[in-house]
Design a protein around this nucleic acid. Sequence first.
DNA 1: TAGATTGTTAATCGATTAACAATC
DNA 2: TAGATTGTTAATCGATTAACAATC
Lengths: 210, 210
Amino acid sequence: MFKKFKIPDATIGRLSMYSRYLSEADEKGITTVSSQDIAQATGVTPAQVRKDLAYFGEFGTRGVGYNSRELYTYIMKILGLDKRWSIAIVGAGNLGRALSKYKGFQQRGFDIVCIFDNDPKKIGKKLANINIYPLDQLEEKVKELKIDLGIIAVPASAAQEVADMLVGAGIRGIINFAPINVTVKENIILRRVDLAAQLEYLTYYLEETR
Amino acid sequence: MFKKFKIPDATIGRLSMYSRYLSEADEKGITTVSSQDIAQATGVTPAQVRKDLAYFGEFGTRGVGYNSRELYTYIMKILGLDKRWSIAIVGAGNLGRALSKYKGFQQRGFDIVCIFDNDPKKIGKKLANINIYPLDQLEEKVKELKIDLGIIAVPASAAQEVADMLVGAGIRGIINFAPINVTVKENIILRRVDLAAQLEYLTYYLEETR
DNA sequence: TAGATTGTTAATCGATTAACAATC
DNA sequence: TAGATTGTTAATCGATTAACAATC
């Protein structure tokens, strides 16, 4: 698409929020929204909204605003969400199991198509109708099922190894839920989500007043 | 503690990473680490490490480095993790259930002490030995069990209402997993974690090359 | 002492906000 | 036309990186 220059990571996250608001507005029959409306709903400033959108083109009409449905469609396309994506989860522990059932992914165009784990008690079983395969079938299944993205939900000690396997199988986008820094070769997109660290952000601020 | 001036949010997240590396190093018997070592393990620059630490004091020895265990203890104190914190999860759906069982919280000093939900089929049951109570007992239980933090794991449509209830019950730190912007009064610490948006970050970058 | 590494200041880089001309 | 709101430029703010004196 129109990625002419470097766009702030934070912008990408905000586009997700904007798109959710826009689909909601569209469903409610609100055809036109202003940067002010979007800003209010998503907790940012109107200038921020306009700036974020300006990176990708001109989507509005001066004096009027944006067409909700149109802008929604544009943003979804920018995010690559005009098509569905297939995902593999590695690790069938608590977190892996929860993510495999999480409705929020389906709604945004993500299909969890298989799960990998090394526990013989889990292999061959199904989870929310998704097959659990052993790790040594990872490459094979990734190719067979045309999996696009990988989610690492194994303990920290196994995370790097799993990342290597995913990359080796040809996967180019990974979310790592293990609380450890994992490295991958260039041009692989890796994102770390540390759930405990989110709570620690809260305790950092509350610590002195408890 | 020593919060003399505004500290970047990103610094707090990095402190979490540093502390994990330091405890690992200490366990391995590595008594002294350099900013270089910490940086390499956590994927940042040595200058960044030193800068982050400098916000809070002088913890190292020039020409030598940092004592792993000592620095670990300092950072854990900065993050407020020198004591345990009690957490309530609101929403006993897939995500809420997974979070209630997630081992990663326990390890960092967080105790999930109760779950709230409005589904009569769930109320009164236990989940990983944690009681599920109806939402209308939220305030009562929060006070009785001295709950510090709340996790919102309900659908977007209920998130604001739940946030209001948590704040009304005296909770001052909230993680919101619902994909919607929730507002709370000043001096309540709120953090939003949007799992689908994490995947969308990947697809944004991969979209053009798929 | 020479080598190593911190703590801190200054320089750079990047992102957000403010302001306003363009234009519906 | 007058009022509203975008798109864009310039100003501001904040965070990261580089450099180096201090010091073990």
